[in-house]
Each structure stands twice: as C-alpha cells, then as structure tokens.
Write a protein that binds this DNA or RNA. Structure first.
Ligand SMILES: [Mn+2]
Ligand SMILES: [Mn+2]
Ligand SMILES: [Zn+2]
Ligand SMILES: [Zn+2]
Lengths: 153, 153
DNA sequence: TTGCTTATGCAATATGGTTGCATTAAGCGA
DNA sequence: TCGCTTAATGCAACCATATTGCATAAGCAA
C-alpha cells in the first residue's frame, strides 16, 4: 500500500514536473531525473556521460535505450537541446526558460575532448538565400583548453 | 614491364600530386583520387557519399577502410577539413589554398538532410578566456531548404 | 633494381544509436 | 479507491559509422 507522490515538495523538482506535464507528457521518474541532471550539468552531456552519472547514483538503474528515448523526448518537447559535437556525438543541454535563444557558443578542446561554454555574444542571425527557413544555429569553436595547452609546452 | 607515371600531364592532378608530396606523403592513386573528388565537390561529403561516387566511377574500387584512412590522412596533412554535421556524421571538404580560413558557414536542412554552403561573412574570431588556444570554428545553421519548405506548405 | 617503409585490403571489432515487442505504470474516469 | 487505457520502459536484436590488427602490395630512395 504505497502512496504515490504526485507533486514533489522540492521546488526545483516540482518545476521540472510541471514543465513535463505542461509539455503534454507523463511525469515519470526517468524524465524528471534526466531533466534534473541536465539542468544541473555545467556542460553539454552525451549519452555515456549520462549513463555514468546515473550508474554512480544510489538510485535504480535506467536502461540505455530509455535514456536515449527520454533525451529525445525532452528534445522534442523543447525542454532540452540536442547537437552533435566535434567528434560526431550528440550532446544534450537543458533548454533555458525561453529568451536565451540557446545560441551560446561552445569550445571543444581538441586535446582532451572537453566542452567549454563560452560567455560570448552569439553571432547575429544570418541572412539566408531566398526560400530558406532559419531554424537555429550553433557556433562550434575548436581549440585547446589551458590544461592541454600546458601539456605540450 | 609497366612504366609508372610519376607526374600527371593534367595540371589539376599534377597540383594535387605536388600537394601530397609536399605534405610529406607518398603519392598514391587513392589519395590523388579522393583529393580530386573533394576538390570538385560542391558540398561537404561524408564517407558514404564518397563510397557511392567511387563505386560509380569506372575505376578500380577502393576499400571502405582505405577511404577512411585516406580522408584522415588528408585532414592531418591539412589538405582537407573534417567536421561533424548535424546528424553526427563526419563530412570532408578540400582545404582552400590558404587564406580563406575555412570558416564559411553551412546550412543543414532538417527536412532532407542536405548541406548547403552559405556565402556569408564568417563571424569574427571569438575572444577566448585566458589560457585557451583558438583552433578554428564552424558556424552550423539549421533550417529548411526551399524544396522542403515548399513540401509542407 | 633492390630493399625499406608506408599504404592498402580484408576481417574483426568498437561505438553510438535505433527498432520491435512484451511488460509496467501514469493518469483518468467510474 | 479501483480498474482501464494508453504511454513509457526494459530487453534483445539490430543497424550505421568508424576503428584496429595484421598480412600483402606498392612508393620511392639509394
Ligand atoms: Mn553550454
Ligand atoms: Mn556513430
Ligand atoms: Zn583540453
Ligand atoms: Zn531540404
């Protein structure tokens, strides 16, 4: 005779639950957990990052496929963004509350593979040839992080 | 008793051979053929594009792995550029003769998956946080091409 | 022309991502 | 609160893209 918790008492989680419900989906443990994870991440995460984080948590495991499906659902629902990184791997970030048009730039270190968020003004929206429709953009910067620059000094 | 042709009579090919030799590599049929192919392509090509093009040519086939290896060698040698597209697949372009810093933008159609080169001024080189080293960048624009915009009118 | 070394072919493997289908559980109406 | 319906999950199989190991072939310098 388990009581199911319909709304979390933690306001962060309550917000997440509301966002999911608002997007027209069922509020499941997996969705809440992954969106929470993305929101507290300091950099875009890929499937394996997430799998590892999930495994390290003292909570029930999640199937690999479920992670993919939840991430894709969050993306479809507009709660997350999905973009291929320089290595051709998809990375996910939590969508910002609307406003920051998710156009902020990332630097990908060619040494260690790390991704770093850059606080730079997004480039202006490009003028496309006639007939094209704009759908968003991402500035992908390659380079080396301080640690890797130092490594081969 | 076959005589090997050391230098092509075709000036385009001769240039390619010179570039390869100049990069410190052996001039092989595969390298010449693929660099030629990239140089005459109008858009970034991925492995499968290239495989198909190669197959359609009335020349000896090339192994899939060799294509990968040649493409990577060309990239290392600075004769080609390699970048993941929006779908997480690597696409290759011939390097420009030096000068155009290969920062020109691409639009990737979310409808048909096509890639379109845009003739727009590249965004200014970003100012990175202290310690980082700049290594190049690519502006990746998502949207829809005229045909796909029309398709769901 | 020979010999050393690099490039290639082929088979096996790795990685990242998807699909089909049976089972579970969220949410809703009774 | 209970059961029903439908969406979400787990599991196994699969697929696409890319890489590795090793034996063989070919470039090219001497
Ligand atoms: Mn970021
Ligand atoms: Mn892949
Ligand atoms: Zn680094
Ligand atoms: Zn299109």
């Amino acid at each position: 005779m388990r009581r199911l918790m319909k709304h979390s008492t933690d306001p962060r989680i309550a917000m997440i639950e509301a966002a999911i419900r608002n997007a027209g989906g069922r509020v499941t443990a997996s969705r809440v957990r992954l969106l929470d994870l993305l929101q507290s991440a300091r950099e875009p995460l890929c499937q394996t990052d997430i799998e590892n984080l999930i495994e390290s948590e003292p909570l029930p495991a999640m199937d690999r496929v479920t992670i993919y499906r939840v991430l894709d659902w969050l993306t479809e629902a507009g709660l997350a963004h999905k973009a291929a990184d320089g290595r051709g791997v998809f990375r996910f970030t939590a969508a910002k509350p609307e406003g920051q048009h998710e156009q902020h730039a990332h630097l990908r270190c060619t040494g260690c593979g790390g991704t770093f968020c850059l606080d730079m003004a997004p480039p202006p929206r490009p003028v496309l040839p006639r007939g094209f429709r704009f759908g968003g953009m991402a500035l992908d910067i390659r380079g080396e992080c301080p640690r890797c620059v130092g490594a081969h000094a």
